[in-house]
């Protein structure tokens, strides 16, 4: 059975936090929808990492179950997200997310 001997939980959390921040920064700064989706993917994987590490630390299955959930969520999100990307491309002929701001109040 694999155990993360020698790697303290804090380090894994710092890594997960860094990954989350990188993904979030990507969401904020990128305007291309594809990159946006990729950044979201990174954020979700950061969450998954944190779940898995925590599950391993306390020897609970919950962490891994949550990771499965995150995975399927990501798959579903990509399915919807790619559909939106196609629509965006068809309507605007580009993938700039800022241009799609018709809902402004």
């Amino acid at each position: 059975m694999f155990t993360a001997v020698g790697i303290p939980l804090e380090h894994v959390f710092i890594l997960a936090g860094l990954l989350f921040l990188i993904g979030f920064t990507g969401v904020l700064v990128r305007r291309n929808v594809i990159f946006l989706l990729m950044s979201l993917e990174i954020m979700m994987n950061a969450c998954g990492l944190a779940f898995v590490a925590a599950g391993a630390r306390w020897a609970e299955a919950d962490g891994q179950i949550m990771y499965m959930l995150v995975l399927s969520l990501a798959a579903a999100e990509v399915a919807v997200g790619l559909g939106l990307v196609l629509q965006l491309e068809r309507r605007y002929r580009h993938l700039d997310i800022d241009a799609a701001s018709e809902l402004s109040g």
């Binding site: 979030f24 969401v27 904020l28 997310i97 799609a100 701001s101 018709e102 809902l103 109040g105």
Partner: peptide
């Protein structure tokens, strides 16, 4: 309040 409603996704995320 409607000034905050820009319609920009990234602004909402922030």
């Amino acid at each position: 309040l409607s000034l905050t409603q820009t319609g920009r996704l990234r602004w909402y995320a922030a």
